[in-house]
Nucleic acid binder design. Structure first.
Lengths: 223, 223
DNA sequence: ACAAAAGTGTTGCATATACACCCATGG
DNA sequence: CCATGGGTGTATATGCAACACTTTTGT
């Protein structure tokens, strides 16, 4: 292939991460405000351009660090967005990821070289994001709801030593519906995506067992 | 962002499609032989570079047409490959798709501007592909096996008027294992990814009902 | 009439759901 | 001593897997 063919040149790669959390029962997403054109002063999902010398995963880590200060969280790829006009400057492909983290455990930068603000927003109240991030966010929410119990996607929200009632409430917040306590417990334990983590806590009325996510998610192959 | 920043420039997008078929009971993949460097004379999965003015989906269609003559087939995205060194010429991201088609119904071009050959290979016998296509192919096979009954991914293999025994045999070939006839039937009909398609065929000993895939795949949300 | 291919049925096990009940602690 | 929150159990329905039988048709 010809590197200088104008059909191929000037293509860029956006990395986008829908960073979710559950904040006192509210399902939220982290948005940052752009400092520069295009979409100056618009809220968007966390992300930026992928460099030449990095994988999309490493680029995503770097972008999260640069634009929010957040490090050490996992994410899962869920989509690719490729409308040629999704960015006005040049052709930018977007590779989209999803993360769920604990907003209490991170200190989010509100001012960086390229962002003028950062804030957790309730999902329902988000609209009018820059680029095609409204669409990406909608897909991310859908993906999260679908995969919440078939992977360890909540591991960063509850790294360890969490109680089942806590995980239960967070799951209800994310899914936006009530789940039977007892069936939730049975389901989570039977799928083996979590396991006991030793000790008991005394926070509530009655002490509760502590759990942690297993290293690998679960796969169910049919037939 | 700065368009001319060398960190971003010279990035390209590869489109790759793992095109599968079932040929007289054999699970096969379509490979093409490269005419030019890099990986000259190597077999690779069908694909090429995405242009600036097209989505990855439209680019994939164009590439299939150009390199194999195949048109009018659906495909599903299943992965992104981003090792910076996966192509020696420049940084090429790969967006990977999967299709299952009927090799009897297509005329595959063996000579095109950029390919010197094209052939259906049995999956087990494929190795040493150019680029990182060995890895992409392995992931594609895994993805297909996992999603074979939860989507209409086989629709292009059996566009309409297929019998259940036929679909049954093809599924066994793809999964590489025996499936109980009667349970297969019940499963397929209960999930509503297929529906009756009118008339009867008289090919075999006894006439069989005809089916077709429903337009949309099936989604099962838990809770 | 028999073999080969298509269709239908039954039974048992596993999983899911919708419930009720017991235990520990703080006020 | 009771309200709150955490843990366990059970009955029913539903889904899945393993199995046997009937029907049609070509030879």
């Amino acid at each position: 292939m010809d590197i200088n063919n104008p059909l191929y040149s000037k293509q860029g790669i956006h990395l986008v991460n829908a960073l979710f959390t559950v904040d006192r029962g509210k399902f939220k997403v982290l948005l940052i405000k752009r400092k520069n054109q295009p979409y100056k002063d618009k809220w968007i999902l966390v992300g930026g351009a992928c460099y030449n010398n990095e994988t999309v995963e490493n680029g995503m880590k770097r972008e999260m660090q640069e634009k929010t200060g957040i490090t050490g969280v996992d994410f899962q790829l869920f989509g690719v967005y490729s409308n040629p006009n999704r960015s006005p400057l040049m052709r930018m492909l977007a590779v989209a990821f999803i993360s769920v983290i604990d907003c209490e455990k991170v200190k989010v930068l509100t001012q960086t070289q390229k962002t003028s603000d950062a804030e957790w927003f309730e999902i329902d109240k988000v609209k009018g994001l820059g680029y095609d991030h409204d669409e990406i966010l909608a897909d991310a929410v859908k993906y999260l709801k679908k995969n919440i119990f078939s992977s360890n996607i909540l591991k960063n929200l509850f790294p360890h030593n969490f109680t089942l009632p806590l995980l239960h409430k967070a799951s209800e917040s994310i899914l936006g519906k009530k789940i039977d306590r007892r069936n939730f417990r049975k389901k989570l334990l039977s799928t083996h995506i979590i396991k006991e983590d030793g000790i008991l806590t005394q926070k509530g009325k009655k002490s509760a067992k502590l759990y942690k996510f297993c290293e690998n998610g679960v796969e169910k192959l049919k037939f």
